[in-house]
Design a protein around this nucleic acid. Structure first.
Lengths: 213, 213
DNA sequence: GGATAGTAGACAGTGACACTATCCGATAGT
DNA sequence: ACTATCGGATAGTGTCACTGTCTACTATCC
């Protein structure tokens, strides 16, 4: 199909598709003549994937580039999930504040007791450290890391359920399976987050009613 | 204290503090002379709050402006949490795709059965709709909304636990209590998200081992 | 076979964002 | 008196995610 069809099928404008091609997050089509290229269903799926990671997961173009590179480069599940986890994350902390150094030590010890292995440069680890440091300075001074236990347990349950719900994942072509595992990681995150926010809003309403008369 | 001290205490550079003052997310200090202003501990706390919302929660300046305005403007807990929920969210969906229209109807019905009241323009609702629509087109075609039940339940539990853990919240000055409720909403979110990502990475490692030999 | 519409590819331009730099006149501290 | 710092204003910077424009074609419909 031509680029105009690809644009119609995906709802992404031609200039934007060209931009994605330039950035390498969409593979070029098969050139049938110097100014005519042919795009396949694979391109449609990839474009949709890029769109979802951008719009739903809120990833930057460069993060998406890292992910699709990992997908195409034949990384295995383990490596891909590491790549995706880092892509979803916030920013690397270049230098820790004193509180963050302290928090980091405790978080690492805590993660060890949980049996969660962690790469030193994992963005999820950085995010956890930054959040815990802020919680301790601004919200609960002097609180122990054990405060986080319920979160770790709930997250573990959710993650396990998600993996199990991917039905017969390994029976698919491995390429598709990888894509789905990564999409599950990325797409279910906003679901939980949204529910938590809605619950908070409702509970606040319960405590101090809505437009009370 | 002078702006240089404020800068040192908060670790935010003077130009950035001036920028925050211009944007109105930091109230001006008490002018003691045309070119000398006095900042209080309140400014330190507010600056730290802005820093945490920026760095940890990843909010934009304009979203933060909305939140601090709500804080200073004497909104009650219910109103403030609504404001904060919207500030944390992604983007408003201006026009739904056909799949999103479909998803929206089901999500609204589902939220009703859960007893979660939802403002039509709630960003959390939009986020949920966008995520569910993508999940259904890319991950589990034809899946019912009930797939999301475990998420809603887990989120509800977490939210309830958080509210209860704010110890004697209402015994504090109401201003501080509001600030803490909002910070809890914003700062615990990355904690859960990070744990979920770490769990996913570990489970992937279990299924298809780490640097296998 | 000639007009018209569409295409690939290169590159410049845009608008939003979050700072960052520079300048000014005044004043605080020594 | 003198130098460092201050508040306030304005202009500039770098990044990001596109968007627009241009050229040199080609496919196709009349």
């Amino acid at each position: 199909m031509k680029i105009s069809e690809l644009s119609q099928k995906t709802g992404i404008s031609i200039p934007t598709l060209k931009f994605y091609l330039r950035e390498g997050i969409l593979k070029p089509g098969q050139l049938s003549s110097p100014n005519q290229a042919d795009y396949s269903e694979l391109h449609v799926r990839r474009a949709a994937l890029v769109g979802a990671l951008r719009e739903v997961a809120g990833l930057s173009i460069s993060k998406i580039a890292t992910i699709v590179e990992a997908l195409d480069h034949g990384e295995n599940t383990y490596e891909l999930m590491g790549t995706a986890v880092d892509a979803l994350g916030g920013e690397t902390i270049s230098e820790f504040t004193p509180e963050q150094v302290h928090a980091a030590a405790e978080i690492d010890r805590f993660l060890e007791t949980l049996g969660l292995p962690v790469r030193e440069d994992s963005l999820a680890r950085h995010q956890l450290i930054a959040a815990f440091a802020s919680i301790r300075t601004m919200l609960f001074p002097g609180t122990p890391v054990e405060l986080l236990t319920p979160y770790a347990e709930a997250a573990e349950q959710i993650a396990r359920m998600e993996i199990e719900s991917l039905p017969g994942m390994m029976e698919l072509e491995p390429e598709l399976a990888l894509e789905k595992a990564m999409l599950g990681l990325a797409l279910f995150e906003p679901v939980f987050v949204a529910f938590r926010r809605l619950s908070h809003e409702r509970i606040a309403a319960e405590h101090l009613g809505p437009p009370k008369t």
